[in-house]
Simulated scan of single mutants.
Amino acid sequence: MSIQIMDIVGRISYNCDILFRVIDIKEEHETKKAILYGEDIRLIADAPYEDLIVIGGLERRKKSQEIETLEEQSYNLFRQDVDLIKQKQEYEASGGYTKTLNYFQIPGRVLHLDGDPLYLKKCLMLYEKIGVPVTGVHCNEKEMAVKIGTLIDYYRPDILVITGHDSYSKAKGKITDINAYRHSRDFVQTVREARKRVPHLDQLVIFAGACQSHFESLIQAGANFASSPSRVNIHALDPVYIVAKISFTPFMERINVWDVLRNTLTGEKGLGGIETRGVLRTGMPYNSVIHEENL
């Protein structure tokens, strides 16, 4: 069976452990090579054409169901966390604002830059399901650093996500060498440009990175959270769970890093960060806003 662009494939030499989407096929010196994007993880790879096999519908559904089960578990754990935060806020608001719970809340606004339009779509659906205000922008990883300043000025986000695809190649250098990574340098430069606009770590919270990204360089550049400390693959939705936790945490509270990571699908091997303030703000009165809208 011939392999076409956008086919879902597995690598025979890796026992088809990861589902990939074929995004390009190149032919050099009479050998064919495919460029692959992970279907559920933020990994970019290339593979010899003959090492690929198209994954049939039955096998795809089986793997998709396994992933969906993990996603549902992660979502339910996150939902429990959010409910606890809201209960705490209601209790505090009843004493600190008004006895009748006459208050409103403004969660942090997210600007999500993604190198993959399909991943971006999945993430936006999850943001909407959770209730996080978000603007999504599809942008090639190599163009992010040039565009980020204008985007920050226009959208003025509280939280910035810089993600897409990445990978480490042992053939290109040591694991400490950022030049051995597909897009880590692009992510680092984008974080630096963002920090030129908003230097303070608590005025703009940044998540940056993808699969196997150079974690240390991203943190040094100014990211609050990044991937991937152990150079492992991360799930496509992991950035959403991290920034949603920040979006719903009150700005007077500091977030323990483990509290952010524990409900992700990847955990501390793939994700890490530094202590950061939440960005949720509470105000009052709520009723006057409703009355003004009805006038």
Rank of each mutant, 00 (worst) to 15 (best):
residue 110 V to G: 12
residue 196 K to P: 00
residue 192 R to V: 01
residue 214 H to P: 12
residue 229 P to Y: 08
residue 163 T to K: 04
residue 173 G to H: 01
residue 262 R to K: 11
residue 162 I to C: 01
residue 160 L to N: 02
residue 227 S to E: 05
residue 83 D to H: 03
residue 235 H to T: 15
residue 272 G to I: 12
residue 29 H to A: 05
residue 240 V to G: 07
residue 51 D to S: 00
residue 293 E to T: 10
residue 23 I to Q: 04
residue 159 I to W: 02
residue 127 Y to G: 00
residue 8 I to A: 02
residue 14 Y to F: 11
residue 210 A to F: 11
residue 14 Y to A: 15
residue 100 T to A: 12
residue 49 Y to G: 07
residue 226 A to V: 07
residue 26 K to A: 03
residue 274 I to C: 08
residue 291 H to C: 03
residue 269 K to Y: 05
residue 281 R to L: 15
residue 77 L to H: 14
residue 120 L to E: 15
residue 126 L to G: 14
residue 239 P to W: 01
residue 72 E to M: 10
residue 114 D to V: 07
residue 193 E to H: 00
residue 246 I to R: 02
residue 116 D to V: 10
residue 25 I to L: 09
residue 153 D to S: 01
residue 255 I to R: 04
residue 169 S to V: 05
residue 266 T to I: 02
residue 265 L to T: 13
residue 249 T to M: 08
residue 147 K to N: 11
residue 273 G to T: 02
residue 231 R to V: 10
residue 187 F to S: 04
residue 98 T to K: 09
residue 77 L to W: 06
residue 59 E to H: 05
residue 52 L to Q: 07
residue 40 D to L: 11
residue 115 G to Q: 08
residue 22 V to D: 12
residue 124 L to H: 10
residue 282 T to M: 02
residue 119 Y to F: 12
residue 80 Q to L: 03
residue 132 V to P: 00
residue 249 T to D: 10
residue 235 H to Q: 07
residue 15 N to M: 07
residue 286 Y to P: 08
residue 76 N to H: 11
residue 73 Q to A: 12
residue 23 I to P: 02
residue 66 E to I: 09
residue 96 G to H: 02
residue 294 N to Q: 12
residue 128 E to K: 12
residue 141 E to F: 03
residue 219 I to D: 06
residue 208 A to W: 01
residue 180 A to T: 15
residue 293 E to P: 01
residue 125 M to R: 08
residue 259 D to G: 05
residue 107 P to E: 15
residue 211 C to P: 14
residue 251 F to Q: 12
residue 218 L to S: 03
residue 250 P to N: 08
residue 270 G to I: 08
residue 253 E to N: 04
residue 149 G to A: 12
residue 181 Y to W: 13
residue 226 A to I: 06
residue 85 I to P: 00
residue 248 F to Q: 13
residue 78 F to H: 15
residue 36 L to I: 12
residue 35 I to E: 08
residue 141 E to M: 01
residue 222 G to R: 05
residue 79 R to T: 09
residue 224 N to Q: 04
residue 42 R to Q: 14
residue 236 A to R: 05
residue 132 V to E: 00
residue 295 L to C: 04
residue 270 G to Q: 06
residue 82 V to T: 09
residue 22 V to E: 14
residue 84 L to T: 00
residue 56 G to F: 10
residue 30 E to K: 11
residue 39 E to F: 03
residue 214 H to K: 13
residue 158 D to G: 00
residue 289 V to M: 08
residue 170 K to R: 07
residue 62 K to P: 09
residue 149 G to M: 04
residue 2 S to V: 02
residue 169 S to Q: 10
residue 142 K to Q: 05
residue 14 Y to D: 15
residue 264 T to G: 04
residue 105 Q to P: 10
residue 170 K to G: 13
residue 207 F to E: 12
residue 43 L to Q: 13
residue 42 R to S: 06
residue 49 Y to E: 14
residue 163 T to M: 10
residue 124 L to E: 15
residue 249 T to V: 13
residue 281 R to F: 10
residue 294 N to L: 13
residue 84 L to M: 04
residue 137 V to E: 09
residue 191 V to W: 08
residue 138 H to G: 10
residue 58 L to C: 13
